[in-house]
Write a protein that binds this DNA or RNA. Structure first.
Length: 455
DNA sequence: CTATGTAAACAAC
DNA sequence: GTTGTTTACATAG
């Protein structure tokens, strides 16, 4: 695990206390208030999304509440600004820790969840507040305690995913637009030194798309050209960014098996454009339910036996009583990537999930049929259980089973989990959803309106 | 084999 | 042209 060699203390522009928590230097590190902070006030529903801003507001606009670092300006009272505890850095498995040898790594981090992520946005914070001004007439890092170039803070040899993680981590709400990420790279890395090639930008986009640590924010910016905002997932914030490869095809490289020069596959990018459109259309409803998950691509095959893996972490929080891995490549990192255990669950429950995480599971079957457009077909008979334990020869669920790796915006506190360690019961978290149509419509449509704006 | 970087096709805007 | 998705391929280890 290459990243295990990185010293996060150096790369993280936070101070780190003896507990491994990181606080922005601007705050008092190690204060009793920080450790004993009552988080209940911040355990509210997190209907705050990263709005592109109030009308006529777009990401790059700064506001008077926060400075360019995203921290409150001096003298500005921001009552709802997250407490220092919110600024804890992730318990990243650095310092030589080998993730592949620690499938229960999260067990060591039971207390590191972020109960309210995304963090609240102050009322008077009108928009995404970029630390980078588009004019770039000056160096936005000047005077900032958070950003220091040329002092070794940013390791220039780290992979893109890590660098993007750093960029987003220190951005307000851990959210940036692509161009700001570009700017961050220009300022803080050497990836962009070669101005003749745009490959580094391509790589950034590739990582944003392919790495589950990054997610698009629901609302596209009003200036369409700026695209969406990208945000760290709460999982990434808690556990750090992981391999982008995790999200790549597990299909063996068929190189050399071709009989023609033309690729025997779906055209590269064909899914991209169309799915992007689909996502635009269904974003509010499905909330990117199937973003960046190659396992559910119709062109891919589901491994057998038909086990639901723990990465099936949909907005419905389909949760097997004994989650199993889909890890065709045998990677433990894969298996732990999207463990839902840390989100909104009590420590003891998470402990249970941890305990059961590694146990073998019975194959699950489901009458659910789903469609690549985000629709899901429910059994017409409500008596039909949605999931049951099944013999291995039971047909597997569709490979296009909708799932929600992007999970930040709703309901993850309210997940209704099935009995842990049971025999295949599952819980659905349908909070935030409504079903358009009637119960006897097989082709039910899950809609989602996190902002309550109507659709 | 995995992790990573890069190129590129492609769609939408 | 930009943004986003996806696949392919090369390379290091």
């Amino acid at each position: 695990m290459q990243w295990g060699t990185y010293n996060n203390h150096l790369t993280n522009p936070m101070t780190r206390d003896s507990f491994g928590y990181s606080f922005p230097m601007q705050y008092s590190s190690g204060s009793a208030a920080a450790y004993n902070y009552d988080q209940t006030a911040f355990n509210n529903k997190h209907n705050i999304t990263y709005q592109c801003g109030l009308p006529a507001s777009c990401p790059r606009s700064l506001n008077n509440t926060f400075d360019m670092t995203g921290l409150p300006r001096a003298g500005v009272n921001v009552p709802s600004f997250p407490p220092p505890l919110y600024q804890m850095g992730p318990q990243q498995p650095y310092e030589g820790m080998d993730l592949s040898q620690s499938p229960n790594n999260n067990l060591l981090q039971l207390d590191t969840e972020y109960e309210d992520y995304p963090r609240p946005i102050p009322e008077n914070m009108t928009s995404y507040s970029t630390p980078y001004d588009s004019s770039r007439s000056s160096t936005p890092n000047e005077g900032s305690p958070l950003l220091h170039r040329d002092d070794g803070v940013f390791d220039k040899d780290r992979p893109y995913a890590q660098l993007i993680f750093d960029a987003l981590k220190q951005a307000p709400n851990h959210t940036m637009i692509l161009r700001d990420i570009y700017d961050w790279f220009r300022k803080n890395t050497d990836k962009a030194l070669d101005k003749d090639t745009k490959g580094w930008q391509n790589s950034i986009r590739h990582n944003l798309s392919m790495n589950g640590a990054f997610e698009k924010v629901d609302q596209p910016c009003e200036e369409a050209k700026k695209g969406f905002m990208w945000r760290l997932t709460k999982d990434a914030l808690a556990n750090g960014v992981k391999s982008t490869t995790r999200y790549r095809s597990k299909q063996p490289n068929k190189r050399g098996h071709r009989t023609s020069h033309y690729p025997q596959r779906q055209r590269a990018g064909a899914m991209g454009g169309r799915s992007a459109k689909k996502q635009l259309q269904h974003r509010a409803r499905m909330h990117d339910a199937y973003r960046s998950d190659p396992y559910q691509a119709p062109s891919r095959s589901m491994p057998t036996p038909a086990t639901f893996d723990s990465t099936f972490n949909s907005n419905m929080s389909m949760y097997s009583g004994s989650p199993s891995y889909y890890s065709p490549s045998g990677s433990d990192i894969d298996a732990m990537e999207y463990q839902p255990e840390a989100y909104g669950t009590a420590p003891e429950q998470r402990m249970s999930q941890q305990i059961f995480h590694g146990l073998p599971s019975a194959p699950m079957s489901s009458p659910l049929a789903s469609y690549s457009d985000g629709y899901i077909q429910l059994p017409s008979d409500p008596a039909v259980p949605l999931f049951t334990s099944s013999p291995a020869d039971t047909p597997s669920p569709s490979v296009s089973e909708p799932r929600t790796p992007d999970s930040q915006s709703l309901g993850w506190e309210d997940s209704i989990y099935g009995p842990m360690g049971g025999t295949g019961h599952v819980g659905f978290d349908l909070s935030g959803f409504s079903i358009a149509g009637t119960s006897d419509i097989p082709h039910a449509h899950f809609s989602h309106d996190p902002l309550g704006n109507g659709e």
